[in-house]
C-alpha cells in the first residue's frame, strides 16, 4: 500500500527531476516550441513543493489534487492545464483513502491520462505528452520501473513524428526530427514515480 508520504515524495522527486533537466527541456522546446517548457515546469513544480509544505495534505488523493491545482495556477503555458488535469483527475480517482494499492494507482493514472487526452484532443502519435504517458501507464501493470522505461522509450519515439497539436504543429514537416518536450517531461514524471517506489 502507498501512503500520503509516498505521493508527497513523488511530487518532490518530480520537482527535483524537472529542476535537473530544465535546461534540456527548454532546449528541446526551442526548435519546435516557444523555448519555455523547462522554466515553466520548474516554476510550477517549485510552487507545488511549496504548497505541499505550507499545508500538508492528509491523503494521497489530496496531495495530487493540490499539486494539480497549483500547476494550473502557476505554469502559464499549456503544460499547466495538461499536467494539472493529469494530477487532479488522478487524485480525484484515488478518493479519500489514507493508503492506496498499486492497482488503485494504476487505475487512477489511467483515468488521469484519459482526461489529458480529452482536454487536449490529442491521440498517441500526435507527438505530445501522450506518446510517453499512454505506453507508460500501460506498462504500470508490470511495474513502476517498466512504466518509467516505456515512457522514456515513448518520448524517444516522438523524434520522427510529425506534430499534430500545439505550437509545433504550425511547423508541419519541420517538426520531424525533434524530440517532443512534453513527452520528455512526462517521462520524468513517471521516472520520479519509479524512483520513489524503489
Amino acid at each position: 500500500m502507498r501512503d500520503t508520504d509516498f505521493f508527497r515524495r513523488w511530487m518532490t522527486a518530480t520537482a527535483a527531476a524537472v529542476e535537473r533537466e530544465a535546461d534540456r527541456l527548454t532546449e528541446l522546446d526551442s526548435p519546435i516550441g516557444d523555448a519555455d517548457h523547462g522554466s515553466n515546469l520548474m516554476r510550477g513544480f517549485t510552487a507545488v513543493r511549496a504548497a505541499l509544505e505550507a499545508e500538508p495534505p492528509q491523503t494521497p488523493g489530496a496531495v495530487l489534487q493540490l499539486a494539480g491545482r497549483t500547476l494550473i495556477s502557476t505554469v502559464g503555458g499549456a503544460s499547466g492545464p495538461l499536467y494539472g488535469t493529469l494530477l487532479r483527475r488522478t487524485g480525484k480517482e484515488l478518493g479519500e483513502a489514507a493508503e492506496v494499492s498499486d492497482e488503485a494507482v494504476r487505475q487512477a493514472l489511467y483515468a488521469g491520462v484519459g482526461a489529458v487526452a480529452q482536454l487536449g484532443g490529442a491521440a498517441p502519435g500526435d507527438k505530445t505528452m501522450l506518446d510517453a504517458l499512454v505506453p507508460g501507464v500501460a506498462a504500470l501493470s508490470t511495474s513502476y520501473r517498466a512504466a518509467a522505461d516505456a515512457a522514456e522509450n515513448g518520448a524517444l519515439a516522438t523524434v520522427p513524428m510529425l506534430a499534430r497539436k500545439g505550437r509545433a504543429s504550425y511547423l508541419g514537416e519541420r517538426s520531424i526530427g525533434h524530440q517532443d518536450p512534453g513527452a520528455t517531461s512526462s517521462a520524468l514524471l513517471l521516472g520520479a514515480l519509479a524512483e520513489v517506489a524503489g
Binding site: 494550473i72 499547466g80 495538461l82 488535469t85 487536449g120 500545439g166 505550437r167
Partner: peptide
C-alpha cells in the same frame, strides 16, 4: 490559442 484554450477548458471541467 494553446494554453488559453486549455486553461479555460480545464477550469470549466473543474
Amino acid at each position: 490559442l494553446g494554453s488559453s484554450v486549455l486553461t479555460v477548458r480545464a477550469l470549466l471541467v473543474e
